[in-house]
Design a protein around this nucleic acid. Structure first.
Length: 272
DNA sequence: ATGGTGGGCGCCCCA
C-alpha cells in the first residue's frame, strides 16, 4: 500500500471543514497537511475528521492568524513545532508518519510568511520577516540534519509563499517586483532547497515550460479564464525518498468548489 | 485604474 500525502492552505479550517471532508472523500489521502487554519488548538474541529477515520491529529494553531495541522489515518507522532523568528507565530509542525511497510517519513509542514506588499526589507517589516524566516530554515536544515531529515527520508511541504520559476507565475516580467516572485525570494528559496538537496517532485513530474499554479487571488473576477495564478505551494522530498514518489497531482478543480480556498491541494504518492 | 475579495475579530488586522 502506498502512502499518499496532501497539502492544502485551507484559509480557515472551521469555515472550510466540509471542503477538507470533500478532499478526503474524493481522494482518500493517508495524510492531510493544512496551513492557515486560523484556529486556536482548543477550537480545532477534530470530530468531523475523527469520524472520517483521521483520528491522528497534530496541530499548532493560534487565534485568528496562521496555524498548521496534520490529519492522518495512519500512525503519527508529533516531533516538534518549531518557533521561527521569535515571533510566536504558528507556522511549522513536524510529524513522523509510518507507511504500511513500517518505513517512517518525517514531514515538515510550513506556512512561510507572505511578506506584505513592498519588497524592501528596509521599509517593510513583513518582507524582512519573510527573508529572515528563509535564513532560519537554511540554518536549521544545514546544522541539524539528522533531526530534520532522518535516514528514512523527509518532506518539506506547505505554503512557502514563493513562486520560484518563470513558469510558476502568469507573467514573469510583470511579477519580478511583486512579493512572491522577486529575485531575493526565489534565490532564498533555492538556498533552502540546496541545504539538503531537496527534490521538487512536482516540477520533476510537471516540468517547465508548462505553466503550473496552486493559488489564484480572490480579487480576480474570473480566476479560471484569466488564469493569473502563482505556484506558491510546494512538496520537496529528500533524494532517497524522491525515488519512491511515483505520482503528483495539483487539484486545480478545487479552486472552483463552493466557497473555495484561494489555494488548491497538492497530493503526492509514495511507494513505501 | 492603485482597486478588487475573503477570513477572523471586534470598530481593523492579514492574505
Amino acid at each position: 500500500m502506498p502512502l499518499t500525502i496532501a497539502t492544502w492552505n485551507i484559509n480557515s479550517v472551521r469555515l472550510r471543514q466540509d471542503l477538507v471532508a470533500k478532499l478526503i472523500s474524493e481522494h482518500a489521502p493517508d495524510v492531510v497537511c493544512l496551513q492557515e487554519t486560523k484556529c486556536p488548538n482548543d477550537a480545532f474541529p477534530t470530530k468531523i475528521f475523527e469520524k472520517l477515520g483521521y483520528g491522528q491529529i497534530a496541530i499548532n494553531g493560534q487565534k485568528g492568524y496562521h496555524g498548521v495541522a496534520v490529519l492522518s489515518r495512519r500512525p503519527l507522532q508529533e516531533v516538534v513545532a518549531r518557533p521561527f523568528c521569535d515571533m510566536g507565530d504558528s507556522r511549522h509542525i513536524a510529524v513522523d508518519v509510518q507507511g504500511s511497510t513500517g518505513r517512517s517519513v518525517r514531514i515538515h509542514n510550513f506556512y512561510v510568511p507572505a511578506g506584505g506588499d513592498e519588497p524592501d526589507p528596509a521599509i517593510n517589516p513583513k518582507f524582512d520577516h519573510k527573508l529572515r524566516f528563509l535564513d532560519e530554515m537554511i540554518a536549521w536544515f544545514g546544522a541539524d540534519t539528522p533531526t530534520v531529515a532522518p535516514a528514512d527520508g523527509a518532506i518539506i511541504l506547505g505554503d512557502l509563499n514563493i513562486a520560484p520559476l518563470e513558469e510558476d507565475v502568469w507573467s514573469h516580467k510583470k511579477l519580478l517586483k511583486v512579493v512572491s516572485h522577486t529575485p531575493v525570494e526565489t534565490d532564498g528559496l533555492e538556498r533552502v532547497r540546496k541545504a539538503l538537496d531537496w527534490v521538487d517532485v512536482v516540477r520533476r513530474d510537471i516540468p517547465p515550460p508548462e505553466k503550473l499554479y496552486t493559488w489564484w487571488s480572490y480579487r480576480s473576477k474570473d480566476w479560471d479564464a484569466a488564469d493569473k495564478g502563482r505556484r506558491l505551494d510546494h512538496v520537496w522530498l529528500t533524494p532517497g525518498l524522491s525515488d519512491a514518489c511515483d505520482k503528483v497531482e495539483v487539484l486545480r478543480e478545487a479552486r472552483g468548489w463552493d466557497r473555495p480556498s484561494d489555494h488548491v491541494p497538492i497530493i503526492v504518492r509514495l511507494d513505501i
